[in-house]
Design a protein around this nucleic acid. Structure first.
Length: 361
DNA sequence: TTTATTTGACCTGT
DNA sequence: ACAGGTCAAATAAA
């Protein structure tokens, strides 16, 4: 734990140093006539991001110090991973904190929005998948929107009373961008049929699919039907995800790109981040396409190195029990531990008070 | 046979 | 009244 804190401290310093370095660069650009306005803006953005990261980290440590979290295993949440090419250990961390602070304010149903950009004609339904099983229950033409909005609810709504819903809307301006709005958190235990749901899930081809409830022919042609083994690799296009908390109207996660992630194998169980974690908008960033089990039988999951910037995020988790174990495994694995012992997971579960779990309000 | 999707109708909030 | 959201019967797919 102590070493972990030192690690965080080092990260913090690194962020601040980076901010300083970027500020210097900006300063130079300020007095250079050849520097474009865009360059300056980019620099400014990066500066703000660096300091934001540092500040968030400070808040996190303060919270831990205040005993806000009851997590006893320091490794569980302490070591974040990253999606940027800057500090590999900060981004996820930031989002966990940000979401938590946001969630604390929420008294009613959580609503958050995620923008998913799919380029190069990737398999859209996979790209937009977030690891939970959803059932489409409606579609509507929306005023002043070129594309209809599709409504999804949790598959387990009736069996487990899970009230999570989402709707997906294709952007008018950016045909490759889909805006996904989530409402409510998953209270269900996502069973291991996720893969099944995966294959039969709604083919999200908004607009191209059909423009209202009745234009079916086009839809059939537009449906992309590929065997799983192919699709999972075809998805290796750039996928940009932006997440916005609708209550605060802020991006709670800076946009980032997945440049051609190398995917290991087909996903047999994509609920690794379901329930506790997948409810978190940040965690939903982990499209199941990035999670892959080494084998379907052993339930050994590998989060393929996605090359989030210069640093890969590789992990492998062995699970065999409940879904919630899967969830914790995933969380734990982010902490650098390549293989997680199931006993450790159970111990962790025993020690976690989910009411005060940092990912939860 | 079971499960998912489609889609017209209905409900609700403004 | 209207737009957005949801229901549920019909239909399709596995």
């Amino acid at each position: 734990m102590e070493s972990h804190l030192k690690l965080e401290e080092a990260d913090l310093i690194s962020d601040l140093m980076q901010g300083k370095e970027l500020t210097k660069q900006l300063h130079d650009h300020m007095f250079s006539s050849s520097s474009s306005h865009e360059t300056k803006e980019v620099l400014l953005e990066r500066i703000l991001l660096s300091y934001d990261k540092a500040l968030t980290k400070l808040k996190w440590e303060a919270n831990v110090g205040n005993g806000e979290t009851k997590i006893t295993n320091g490794n569980m949440m302490g070591s974040p991973c990253s999606f940027t090419n800057e500090n590999p250990k900060t981004e996820v961390f930031d989002q966990v904190v940000k979401h938590r602070s946001v969630s604390k304010r929420r008294k009613t149903m959580d609503i958050w929005k995620k923008q998913v950009k799919v380029c190069l004609g990737a398999v859209i339904e996979r790209s937009l998948d977030d690891g939970n099983s959803w059932r489409k229950y409606g579609q509507k033409d929306i005023l002043r929107a070129n594309f209809p909005r599709e409504y999804y609810r949790c598959t387990h709504k009736h069996t487990q009373g899970c009230l999570a819903t989402k709707h997906v809307q294709k952007s008018d301006e950016e045909p490759t961008t889909y805006e996904i709005t989530y409402k409510g958190r998953h209270t269900c235990i996502q069973a291991n049929h996720a893969n099944k749901a995966f294959s039969s899930r709604a083919k999200i081809c908004l607009g191209e699919h059909k423009h209202h409830n009745h234009q079916k022919n086009e839809a059939q042609e537009e449906k992309i039907e590929q065997p799983p083994h192919e699709t999972i690799f075809t998805f290796s296009s750039e996928l940009e995800v932006k997440i916005e908390d609708l209550k605060t109207k802020k991006n709670i996660f800076p946009s980032f790109c997945f440049p051609s992630p190398s995917i290991g194998s087909e996903i047999e169980d994509n609920n690794i981040f379901s329930d506790t974690l997948i409810e978190n908008p940040f965690m939903e960033c982990f499209s199941p396409a990035f999670l892959s089990p080494a084998t379907s039988e052993s339930n050994i999951f590998c989060l393929s190195p996605c090359h989030f910037g210069s640093s890969g995020l590789g992990l492998s988790v062995q699970t065999s029990e409940s879904d919630i174990t899967d969830v914790v495994s995933a969380t734990t694995s982010i902490t650098n531990s390549p293989i997680v012992n199931l006993d450790e997971l159970n111990l962790f579960l025993d020690n976690v008070d989910f009411d005060t779990f940092p990912m939860h309000p």
